[in-house]
């Protein structure tokens, strides 16, 4: 601020006086941004308060605070929607794939950045192309792929008499399938970020370790992992919300209630009771609360990570 005032004073001695934002300009700026901020906060606050109204009260008192605060919406939504299962699944999918993505990105990024190989050019290039592809556009072939593979393996094992006549599941309708596909969907960005980051680590450190007789795995474990903590942190911070909120893929990968994630569960739940607003609102609040808390806890890191421009929706 001081620096800027200094600039303005120096500016006044220049050819033309500078007016960095007249009162009117400031007022318009505050107004426009204020309207946007209001439009952001108000619907969420409204949703929050509405979730404590009964559906009858919501009909008659749509905009005001609840008169009779009730937790009944939450109680019955939690039970009907089986939110304990949904949240458990979401935690597993999110944390499991985040760990997988971060580990594989660091490992592969290290190989691309520090081990010389002719294969790096084409393989790294193919990952870069993956950054430009949106995985959602491939959901139909992906669905056909996982179901056909499951059926093919099932038929084969059945012909050998290794499995019974039931449906064989490896990728479709399994937690394993969701994890593998989530990991794969985020690998291009992860590998790109890690490769560029590890390239910045001086090769002299690695060469010194090699002279001491350390192999690449040892170097990875004892040097690279430690030095890559910032990028691993950024990558995780960016992936956690986008995986937690993911919908398009899990929607085709999973049809069993036991395996659903929170967004998929909420979508099905809300489709089932279109006019029971009280329970719907409770479900929506349950759906957004975890990531809002995550945001409050990691706001600094999220802001820094997003502004790296590497976020991909």
């Amino acid at each position: 601020m001081n620096q800027q005032q200094g600039v303005q004073m120096r500016g006044k001695r220049g050819k033309k006086p500078i007016r960095p934002g007249t009162i009117l300009g400031k007022a318009v700026a505050y107004l426009v941004m204020g309207i946007f901020a209001f439009m952001t906060i108000y619907p969420l606050v409204w949703l929050f308060f509405s979730s404590f109204k009964t559906t009858t009260e919501f009909r008659t008192n749509m905009m005001g605070l609840p008169i009779d605060w009730t937790l009944e919406n939450y109680r019955s939504a939690w039970k009907i929607g089986e939110f304990d299962k949904l949240i458990g699944n979401s935690v597993l999918y999110t944390l499991g794939s985040t760990v997988g993505i971060t580990f594989l990105s660091l490992l592969t990024g290290f190989a691309f950045a520090k081990i010389k190989s002719k294969a790096t050019g084409p393989i790294y290039g193919s990952f870069i192309i993956g950054i430009l592809l949106t995985i959602q556009s491939l959901m139909v072939p992906l669905f056909l792929e996982v179901t056909s593979i499951d059926r093919g393996i099932g038929d084969f094992l059945r012909s050998l008499g290794l499995v019974g006549s039931g449906e064989f599941r490896l990728f479709h309708n399994t937690r394993f399938g969701v994890l593998i596909i989530y990991i794969g969907s985020a690998l291009p960005v992860g590998i790109y970020m890690c490769t560029e980051y590890i390239r910045g680590i001086p090769s002299a450190i690695i060469e010194a370790a090699q002279i001491d007789g350390a192999g690449y795995f040892r170097i990875f474990r004892s040097i690279i992992v430690g030095m890559s903590k910032p990028i691993a942190m950024t990558l995780s911070i960016l992936n956690i919300p986008s995986l937690w909120n993911e919908f398009a893929l899990i929607n085709i990968l999973v049809s069993e209630t036991n395996l659903k994630s929170l967004p998929l569960g909420i979508y099905k739940f809300s489709g089932g009771l279109s006019s029971d607003y009280g329970k719907q609102f409770a479900a929506l609040v349950i759906g957004m609360l975890p990531m809002l808390l995550f945001y409050i806890a990691f706001r600094k890191q999220i802001t820094a990570g997003v502004s790296m421009g590497a976020l991909k929706e």
């Binding site: 906060i41 909120n245 967004p263 909420i266 929506l284 957004m288 990531m291």
Partner: peptide, 15 residues
């Protein structure tokens, strides 16, 4: 404040 909507699940926002 302005970043908050990006943290909420698209499904929740849509409904």
């Amino acid at each position: 404040v302005l970043y908050v909507p990006a943290m909420i699940s698209t499904i929740v926002v849509g409904i």
